[in-house]
Amino acid sequence: MAKHKIYTMSFASVYPHYITKAEKKGRTKTEVDEIIRWLTGYNQEELEAQLDKQTDFETFFAEAPQLNPSRALIKGVVCGVRVEDIEEPTMQEIRYLDKMVDELAKGKALEKILRK
C-alpha cells in the first residue's frame, strides 16, 4: 500500500496553516508552538530547525525527542475520523496535532488542550 501523501509533505508547508487557523480565532503562533512542543518534545530551537530543514511529516514525528504520553487522552473527530481509532501511528500523531489546533481555534483553554 502506498504511503499517504501527507507523510511526504514538509511540515513547514502545513505549519503556516496551523498558525492562520489559530490567529483567525484570536489565538497566537506562540500557543500553536506550545502545542507542538508539548506533543513532540521538541524545544523551540529544534522546532524551528525542523521547519528550516523542510522536514516531512513522517520524519518530523519519527525524530520527535519525546512524544507526550498524555497524547493518548486526545479524543474526538478530525476530518470525520475518531483520532483514538486511527491504527497507523504516524497518521494518528498528525491527527492528534490537527485536533489540538482545532481545539485552540475553537477557544478551548490551553491547559485543557494540553490535558493538564
Results as ranks from 00 to 15, higher is better:
99 K>G: 04
31 E>V: 08
84 E>M: 04
88 E>D: 14
63 E>M: 04
104 L>I: 00
31 E>M: 12
99 K>H: 05
48 E>P: 06
85 D>R: 08
8 T>E: 14
111 E>R: 12
100 M>Y: 05
76 G>P: 06
74 I>K: 05
4 H>V: 10
65 P>I: 09
107 G>Y: 06
76 G>T: 10
99 K>Q: 09
24 K>Q: 15
40 T>L: 11
28 T>V: 02
72 A>D: 12
116 K>C: 12
38 W>R: 05
7 Y>L: 15
11 F>P: 00
72 A>N: 09
52 D>N: 06
74 I>A: 07
95 R>I: 11
12 A>S: 09
59 T>N: 04
116 K>W: 09
4 H>I: 11
75 K>M: 10
80 G>C: 01
67 L>V: 08
86 I>L: 11
60 F>Q: 05
87 E>N: 11
93 E>F: 12
27 R>F: 01
9 M>A: 02
40 T>I: 07
20 T>S: 05
44 Q>R: 14
64 A>C: 00
32 V>H: 02
57 F>I: 03
36 I>T: 11
85 D>C: 05
82 R>A: 11
67 L>P: 04
79 C>L: 10
3 K>N: 07
77 V>N: 01
35 I>H: 06
36 I>W: 05
16 P>S: 02
27 R>D: 03
48 E>A: 10
29 K>Y: 12
86 I>S: 08
9 M>C: 00
67 L>G: 02
47 L>M: 08
